[in-house]
């Protein structure tokens, strides 16, 4: 916080109200309990203990749109459902965010050509913030999508009205940070080292052939 930093006693931090609000908001993105097809299984896996979406503050799946900030449209949206999706979106309080999860919601997916009752992308129904492609996407991909939403929240200028929302620069990524023993000034070489190590350990772990 510039010149104010470190001028007070220990345990005191300075921030702007905007940053504090955005920090609180991004750290408690409550998604709606809402799954339509096979992507929902992957969304459940993301919520379960192995991938644990709760690490990013988005683990409280709300059973009502009135308490939710985030709608993860997970699965094929057909026309009959799309009217309901739109109603659920309208029932959510502002500010609200939408993740289109999977190929079907991004653009129709396998039903693009011959699916007579499948909406060709949920962005024809509700405004979408982040698209997560895949069929279905891995849980890591959904977590990455959630981080992009959080970036978007962090860029929000909430208190100063009529300002454009900043285009967020990704500040967290889903890339694996390599442990220090693989560090190398050339990132390609570092990755090769890590891959060689992974291959070696995999061979070690493989059961001996009888």
């Amino acid at each position: 916080m510039g010149w104010l930093e470190g001028r007070f006693e220990e345990g005191m931090i300075t921030t702007t109200l905007e940053q504090a609000i955005n920090w609180a908001r991004e750290s408690s993105m409550w998604p709606m309990t809402f799954g339509l097809a096979c992507c929902a299984i992957e969304m459940m896996a993301t919520g379960a203990s192995r991938y644990d979406i709760d690490r990013f503050g988005a683990g409280a799946f709300r059973a009502t749109p009135r308490q939710a900030d985030l709608m993860i449209v997970a699965g094929t949206v057909n026309f009959k459902m799309a009217t309901r999706v739109r109603r659920l979106y309208n029932q959510m309080p502002d500010p609200k965010f939408v993740i289109a999860m999977g190929a079907c919601t991004c653009g129709g997916g396998p039903y693009y050509k011959y699916g007579y009752n499948v909406v060709k992308g949920v962005d024809l129904v509700v405004p979408v913030d982040v698209y997560v492609p895949g069929c279905p996407p891995r849980p890591e991909a959904l977590l990455e999508g959630l981080m992009r939403i959080q970036d978007k929240v962090r860029g929000m200028k909430y208190l100063t009205k009529n300002q454009p929302i900043n285009v967020p620069i990704p500040s967290r990524t889903g890339y694996v940070q390599l442990p220090p023993e693989f560090s190398d000034p050339d990132p390609v070489k570092a990755l090769e080292k890590a891959n060689a190590w992974a291959k070696e350990t995999k061979e070690k772990a493989a059961p001996a052939k009888a």
Binding site: F79, V119, L124, V125
Partner: peptide
Amino acid sequence: LSEDWIGHPLRKDYEFPLEYHGMR
């Protein structure tokens, strides 16, 4: 299908709807 759907989709000469309740 929803109750206001027009046509029977598995007929060979069925034509896809261009628009349904404002959705392309």
